[in-house]
Simulated scan of single mutants.
Amino acid sequence: MATDHPVVVDPPAEDGSRRVRSDGQVLGRAYSVKDVVAFLQEAGLQGWDEMDVVRSSLIKWQGGGPDTWTV
C-alpha cells in the first residue's frame, strides 16, 4: 500500500464512533476495537483479532489510541 499507515482510525465523533478508512476508502464507523476488527476481517484480514488491531503499526489512531472512544 502507498502509505506507512494503510488503515486510519479518525478521532472520536460526538456519538462515540470513529470512522475507519483504508487507502482513502471508508470501511465504516466503529464504536469499539471489536468493530475495527470486523471491518478489517471484511477487508480480507480474517485472522486478525483485537490484539492485532491494538498492536499493529499498520493502523494510525488519530485523536487517541484504541482505548479512546469519547470526545
Rank of each mutant, 00 (worst) to 15 (best):
52 D>G: 04
35 D>W: 06
24 G>N: 02
33 V>T: 07
34 K>Y: 03
12 P>A: 11
60 K>Y: 07
33 V>P: 03
10 D>Y: 00
18 R>Q: 07
47 G>I: 02
27 L>F: 03
43 A>D: 15
60 K>P: 00
9 V>P: 02
32 S>I: 03
39 F>C: 08
32 S>H: 01
16 G>I: 01
52 D>W: 09
35 D>A: 05
38 A>H: 12
40 L>Q: 03
67 D>A: 12
39 F>R: 02
36 V>S: 05
46 Q>M: 11
20 V>E: 04
65 G>M: 08
11 P>D: 03
67 D>S: 13
10 D>A: 13
11 P>N: 10
7 V>T: 15
2 A>G: 08
65 G>F: 10
5 H>A: 13
51 M>V: 10
13 A>C: 10
41 Q>V: 11
55 R>K: 13
17 S>F: 01
32 S>Y: 06
71 V>E: 14
40 L>P: 06
70 T>D: 14
8 V>T: 13
7 V>M: 09
48 W>K: 07
58 L>C: 12
33 V>S: 03
17 S>D: 08
56 S>Y: 05
57 S>D: 15
26 V>S: 08
29 R>A: 05
68 T>L: 11
32 S>E: 01
22 S>K: 07
21 R>N: 05
52 D>M: 12
56 S>E: 09
69 W>E: 08
46 Q>A: 15
69 W>F: 04
69 W>L: 02
58 L>F: 08
16 G>T: 01
64 G>L: 08
70 T>K: 12
32 S>N: 02
9 V>D: 03
15 D>A: 03
41 Q>K: 14
12 P>K: 02
61 W>A: 11
37 V>H: 06
8 V>H: 03
60 K>M: 12
27 L>C: 04
52 D>V: 00
62 Q>C: 13
16 G>Y: 07
24 G>P: 01
49 D>W: 08
53 V>H: 15
27 L>G: 02
70 T>P: 00
54 V>Q: 15
57 S>L: 11
70 T>S: 15
65 G>W: 08
31 Y>V: 04
10 D>M: 10
7 V>W: 00
42 E>S: 15
45 L>P: 00
62 Q>F: 00
68 T>A: 10
51 M>N: 15
39 F>Q: 06
61 W>I: 10
35 D>Y: 05
12 P>H: 03
8 V>K: 09
19 R>N: 09
31 Y>M: 05
55 R>F: 00
16 G>K: 05
40 L>G: 10
19 R>V: 13
3 T>P: 01
15 D>L: 04
55 R>Q: 14
40 L>C: 10
34 K>E: 14
43 A>K: 04
65 G>H: 10
48 W>N: 11
63 G>Y: 04
38 A>C: 08
12 P>R: 01
39 F>W: 03
70 T>A: 15
71 V>H: 11
53 V>F: 06
